[in-house]
Amino acid sequence: MKRGLSEDDAKPHHLGHRERLRERFRLGGGEALPDYELLELVLFRAISRQDVKPLAKALIARFGSFAEVVAATPERLKEVPGVGEAVVTELMIVHAASKRVTKGEINRRTLLASWNAVIDYCRAAMAFAEREQFRILFLDKKNGLIADEVQGEGTVDHTPVYPREVMNRALELSASAIILVHNHPSGDTTPSIADIDMTRKLIDAGDKLAIRVHDHIIVGRNGHASFRGLKLI
């Protein structure tokens, strides 16, 4: 004789999985979960009535890591079956939140006194972008952040930078110093000859206006390179 289904039996399996995963997160935080499970927690908000584990694993397989998934462009995300506008929106919110948190860390202190926070912010903002971006952090006399601006976006391996425009903007903001940042979508953070030449031109232009170039940082998927650390400045 076939027994009747209990209330628990009648519930879809993924509902129990969701609660168990949330409980593990509450007890151990994000460090207790692999990338695909942390991604599941984000997908729960976008997809309420199905098992999202296969989609989470597909996204990790496609992009490589949780960080790369949330930083991917909407167009590339939608190439993965099962990703719609709701999923894209939730992932964009997570990415925006991560940048806001790391930027908050550098806003509360002088940049040179919170260097690790600067690196974290730059990597959150740019490390996984598919095209090169050139960003400038404008600093006041106490090395506090005045403005953070993307000056240009280029191809997968080149962004045009014009020293006159950079220095004009620094003067407009009354900046005393700048930090240059750009990304290498290839992941290799080794400065190119063009990177070194461009940096020297900016240093020369800044010297004439008493605007110091503190550093030039290259960020990539697997780390970063500092021109000052490499003794290129």
Score class of each variant (00 low, 15 high):
L145P: 11
K103G: 15
P163F: 01
F138A: 11
T110A: 13
V101M: 10
G144P: 03
R135D: 12
I136K: 13
E153R: 10
A96M: 11
A127H: 03
L137W: 02
G82S: 07
P160C: 02
E130W: 01
N168M: 07
L171A: 15
K99L: 12
D140A: 04
E165Q: 10
V87P: 11
T159C: 15
P81T: 03
G152Y: 01
L139C: 10
M126A: 15
E132W: 01
L111S: 06
K78I: 11
C122R: 03
T102H: 10
H158I: 05
D140N: 14
Q133A: 14
L137G: 08
L112Y: 04
T89G: 07
V150T: 15
R109A: 13
I119E: 06
K78C: 13
N116I: 00
F128Q: 13
V166I: 09
V83D: 07
A113Y: 03
Y121K: 01
V156P: 08
V156S: 14
E149D: 07
Y121A: 02
V94N: 13
H158T: 05
L145A: 08
A127K: 03
H158F: 07
M126F: 06
V87E: 12
E132H: 03
A129S: 12
K78V: 10
K103Q: 15
A96W: 00
P163V: 07
L137K: 01
D157P: 01
M167E: 08
A97E: 11
Q151F: 03
T155D: 10
Q133W: 01
Y162N: 14
A127G: 04
N116G: 13
L171M: 12
V101D: 14
V83E: 05
L145R: 04
T89M: 11
R164L: 13
Y162K: 10
A96V: 06
V166N: 05
E153F: 01
K142V: 06
S98L: 09
T159L: 05
V80R: 06
E153T: 09
W115E: 12
L145G: 09
